[in-house]
Design a protein around this nucleic acid. Structure first.
Length: 260
DNA sequence: TTGCATGTTCCGGA
DNA sequence: GTCCGGAACATGCA
């Protein structure tokens, strides 16, 4: 599930419940989810401190805890954060941050994401690797300039985190569908009009997804159609096509997505 | 039982 | 050097 909009939802959960509260204890239930530290290392680095305002960049959530140290969260395909007040931790909880009044759980069914600790500002980028500008605050001219340098497929460009950060498989399909661009198109085959449309669609999709903290489950969205037994284009009703594009399962409308 | 899954990374080949 | 596909990672579900 987690793409940019979902991670923004987790950021809000974090900001609402965890910021400013003394960290009583960090309880790691599965040490394998800590990628560059140990349960002891994480616990020692955080105990008694308070989280500052968290920051999202693409699909990364960065949570500073003072003194330059930052906890970095990545959610893989199945991870998330949940605030828990009283009840027992759920099935796939890997790390528990115990705070006043409750606990913040990092959960992940498949252990593809992870939790990292950076001891100073410079280490953050070492962990995330090169990231392009966040897709949600990428202006049109910068977007055009970035894409004009790309040679390969448009979908793989949108999902390239080092080019622009935050778009995954589902957001990319949604954006391409809204813009009327075939996901199999090469970037170089698109004229400026198509690229502008792509940017406008990206802004639109992100704005509405960010509001919800996820891709809306709206019948007018592709995201909803791809779940159906007989997936049809919400715009024109044509049977959707699907197949692997840029290594991921993609859905597109053969009638609406003609730009290639 | 098999295939598939919204993430990233690494490898080999074109 | 660039780009792409495939495999791997770990786990649960249809």
């Amino acid at each position: 599930m987690p793409e940019l909009a979902d991670v923004e939802g987790f950021r809000r959960v974090f900001a609402r419940h965890a910021v400013g509260q003394p960290i009583r204890r960090v309880h790691t239930l599965d040490a394998a989810i800590l990628r560059n530290t140990s349960p002891q290392g994480l616990g020692r680095a955080l105990k008694g401190r308070r989280f500052r305002e968290p920051h999202r960049h693409g699909k990364w959530l960065l949570a500073p805890a003072g003194d330059g140290r930052t906890v970095l969260f990545h959610f893989g395909m199945t991870g998330g954060l949940r605030w828990r007040d009283g009840e027992e931790p759920g099935r796939h909880v890997r790390v528990v941050f115990e705070l006043r009044g409750g606990a913040l759980d990092y959960h992940a069914q498949r252990k593809i994401g992870g939790v990292w600790l950076a001891r100073d500002e410079g280490k953050v980028e070492e962990v995330t690797g090169p990231l392009g500008p966040d897709a949600a605050s990428l202006g049109r001219d910068d977007f055009l300039a970035l894409l004009e340098e790309k040679k390969g497929g448009v979908k793989s460009a949108l999902m390239d985190q080092s080019l622009l950060a935050g778009l995954g498989n589902e957001l990319s399909d949604e954006i391409l569908w809204r813009a009327g661009v075939d996901p199999r198109a090469k970037v170089g085959s698109l004229d400026e009009g198509a690229l502008r449309k792509l940017h406008a669609s990206m802004c639109d999709v992100l704005k509405r997804s960010l509001r919800k903290g996820r891709i809306p489950m709206d019948p007018a969205w592709l995201r909803n159609a791809r779940e159906q037994d007989d997936p049809r284009c919400p715009r024109c009703g044509a049977a959707l096509r699907h197949g692997k594009v840029a290594g991921r399962t993609s859905y597109w409308c053969p009638r609406c997505q003609g730009s290639r």
